[in-house]
Amino acid sequence: MRASTVGSPPLPSSAITRRKLATLIAAVPILGACVSARAGSDYYAGPVSDHFDGSRFFNPGGDGPRPFTDLLRWQLTESRTAWPESFPSPHPQDSPPARVEGKALRVSFAGHATFLIQGAGLNIITDPVFSDRASPFSFYGPKRVNAPGIDFGRLPRIDVVLLSHGHYDHMDVDTLRRLWERDRPRILAPLGNDVILRGHHPGMVVEAMDWHARRDLGAGVAASLEPVHHWSARGLFDRNHALWGGFVLTGIGDGIFFAGDTGFDQGRPFRRVAERHPGLGLALLPIGAYEPRWFMAPQHMNPDDAVQGFQLLGAHQALGYHWGTFNLTNEGVDSPAQDLATALAAKGIEPARFLAAQPGLVWTNAAT
């Protein structure tokens, strides 16, 4: 793994110890191991399935989330590469058009896992997070090191929100409230996440979906929820009481796969998507928050995993996200981009086909 070229000078041991303790406190809400503000009994209830045991969801044939003891081991015994307080994007903030019609596709990156997808006259946003922190606390927890690539006030009217799962760096209830109050978009989310959101905003309408469910979005566009290898929690008492997933959009561009969060899981998520939705044009794949591998491998891909997933999907283009905005794990702020370049070179893939997205990046299908 290549060392980061962006960081801070070495810290004295006492400062490192204080930072580790502070980082543990910060990591707890992100990994869903803190006491949630809504810990209680209002969880999803539904029939048993191949990924739901009547109480909790699980990855069929795959690893579950790491126990809290492993979280303590990671945070208190391992070193982290220091991040800078600011890591500005080279791209200016985007000013999206009101609509993109027809077969044209415009994808703008706001940061972390938030993409604005425009095509077929629809405006679709993924895992919208516009808050300063990915945390249940406004005053503590991982803080942005760059501004959103789209100012919230410049977002066009949003028609559809796609939520992949309930971790704090993907489900930002304050941003969702703002979008709901402004635009009343359709909100699609895996089973159980509707319960979480109604607990915060009782009037919010959320369409809960199981794996392989499909929703017609109009204009010939449809969204399907696909299995990925992850987990969910927002507190000590709600681990895996809500489902997770990725989304495939068809009828827009040449088709899009948004993976949400996922481990590589021997490539199974990508083989399944390729079988059900062959010939997709664009893959949105996470490439960050992957160190240390002994802890993160079941839940987050590293860039080499993501490149393998891209190959299995057979997509024409990929954009890498989930890096360089919130300091969640041990790798340096720019390590994912460096490691992606290494992985692409090793597999002989043209770098332009898989870009490490930074806030403000705009990709269109004009050249495809």
Rank of each mutant, 00 (worst) to 15 (best):
S138L: 14
R133G: 02
Y140M: 06
H112W: 14
Y140P: 00
N146V: 07
S131F: 08
L116D: 04
I124W: 03
F152E: 15
A113S: 15
P128M: 08
A134E: 04
L122N: 09
V129E: 07
R154D: 15
F130I: 02
F115Q: 12
F137P: 01
K143A: 13
R154A: 15
A113C: 13
A113E: 10
V129K: 12
L122I: 02
P128H: 09
A113G: 12
I124H: 02
T126D: 06
I125T: 06
G119Y: 12
N123H: 08
F115G: 06
A134Y: 00
P148H: 05
A120N: 10
I117L: 09
R133H: 06
A120C: 12
G141A: 10
T114N: 09
H112K: 03
P128D: 12
N146T: 13
T114E: 03
F137L: 12
S135P: 01
F115I: 05
D132A: 15
G153Q: 13
P128L: 09
F152G: 11
F139A: 11
F130T: 05
T114I: 03
F139Q: 07
L122A: 03
R154Q: 14
A120H: 07
S131V: 08
I124V: 14
F115S: 04
N123L: 01
G149V: 00
L116W: 00
G111Q: 10
N146C: 13
T114L: 03
I125C: 07
P156R: 07
D151S: 15
L155P: 01
G121P: 08
P148K: 08
Y140R: 14
F152M: 13
Y140L: 14
S138I: 14
T114G: 04
V129N: 11
N146R: 10
I125R: 02
A110N: 03
R154M: 09
F130W: 14
N123G: 06
F115E: 06
S135H: 10
F130L: 02
P142V: 09
R144S: 14
A110P: 08
P136K: 11
R133L: 01
K143H: 09
G119C: 10
A120L: 07
P148F: 04
V145R: 15
L116Q: 04
G141C: 06
A147T: 12
D127V: 04
R133S: 03
H112E: 13
D132Y: 13
L122W: 04
D127K: 07
P148E: 11
S138R: 15
R157G: 11
L116H: 02
F152C: 05
N146F: 02
G119E: 10
D132I: 09
P128I: 10
Q118C: 01
G153W: 12
G121A: 09
P128N: 10
D132N: 15
S135W: 05
S138P: 08
D151M: 07
F137T: 08
D151Y: 06
I125F: 04
H112P: 00
S138C: 05
G153V: 09
K143S: 11
A134I: 01
G121F: 11
G119M: 06
R154H: 14
G141D: 12
I124G: 01
I117T: 09
F152A: 15
R154P: 00
T126M: 08
H112T: 06
H112N: 13
S135V: 04
